[in-house]
Simulated scan of single mutants.
Amino acid sequence: MDGTPQEITNLVGREVYSNNGVFVGEVRDVHLDFERQTVTELALQDLNNELFHGRIDPGKGVMVPYRWVRAVGDVILINDVVERYKEEEEEKAIA
């Protein structure tokens, strides 16, 4: 994050991409820890079907820990954890 204060509501509706530039989903909601005054999770919807096929029912969303967020700008960049998880599953299926 660049340290620039942002309105939390500005996160809603932004597209989320992995570090590798793969579309993950769109922010639907933001979960907060009021005691610490921090964002804890992003609720994503309109997910990338290729990444989540067979794991998430169509029309459902996922929660992404905010600690995965690497940058917030016109889009939100997160660690490529989702892609790595998919690759590990594919490797298990091949073995």
Rank of each mutant, 00 (worst) to 15 (best):
M1L: 03
M1H: 02
G3P: 03
T4E: 09
T4R: 04
T4N: 12
P5F: 09
P5T: 12
Q6A: 12
Q6T: 12
Q6C: 07
Q6S: 09
E7K: 14
E7P: 00
E7A: 11
I8L: 09
T9F: 12
T9I: 14
T9Y: 10
T9C: 07
N10R: 04
N10H: 03
L11F: 00
L11H: 03
L11M: 08
V12H: 04
V12D: 06
V12I: 15
G13Y: 01
R14E: 09
R14H: 11
R14N: 09
R14S: 06
R14M: 12
R14K: 15
E15F: 07
V16C: 07
V16T: 01
Y17D: 05
N19R: 15
N20S: 15
G21K: 05
G21L: 05
V22Y: 01
F23H: 03
V24R: 01
G25H: 00
E26I: 04
E26L: 06
E26T: 13
V27I: 06
D29K: 15
D29L: 14
D29Q: 14
H31Q: 08
H31W: 06
L32T: 14
L32K: 10
D33G: 06
D33F: 03
F34V: 13
F34N: 15
F34Y: 13
V39R: 02
V39I: 13
T40D: 07
L42N: 05
L42C: 08
L44E: 03
L44D: 04
L44Y: 11
L44R: 01
Q45C: 07
Q45V: 07
Q45H: 05
D46R: 12
D46H: 10
N48P: 06
N49K: 15
N49P: 06
L51K: 14
L51Q: 12
F52K: 04
F52S: 00
F52Y: 07
H53F: 09
H53E: 13
H53T: 14
G54I: 11
R55M: 10
D57W: 07
D57S: 02
G59R: 11
K60I: 06
G61V: 09
G61R: 15
G61Q: 12
V62F: 04
M63H: 11
M63K: 10
V64T: 11
V64Q: 01
P65G: 00
P65F: 02
P65D: 14
R67K: 15
R67A: 12
R67G: 01
R67N: 09
R67T: 06
W68V: 10
V69C: 02
R70W: 05
A71E: 02
A71V: 10
A71P: 05
V72W: 08
V72R: 05
G73H: 07
D74A: 07
V75H: 15
V75S: 13
V75P: 03
V75Q: 05
I76E: 03
I76W: 00
L77M: 15
L77T: 12
I78C: 09
I78P: 03
N79P: 01
D80L: 07
D80G: 10
D80N: 14
V82A: 00
V82D: 02
V82F: 00
V82R: 02
R84W: 10
R84T: 01
Y85F: 13
K86A: 09
K86G: 01
E87P: 05
E87L: 10
E88M: 15
E89P: 01
E90C: 07
E91H: 13
K92V: 13
A93Q: 13
A93E: 11
A93T: 13
I94T: 11
I94Y: 14
A95C: 08
A95G: 12
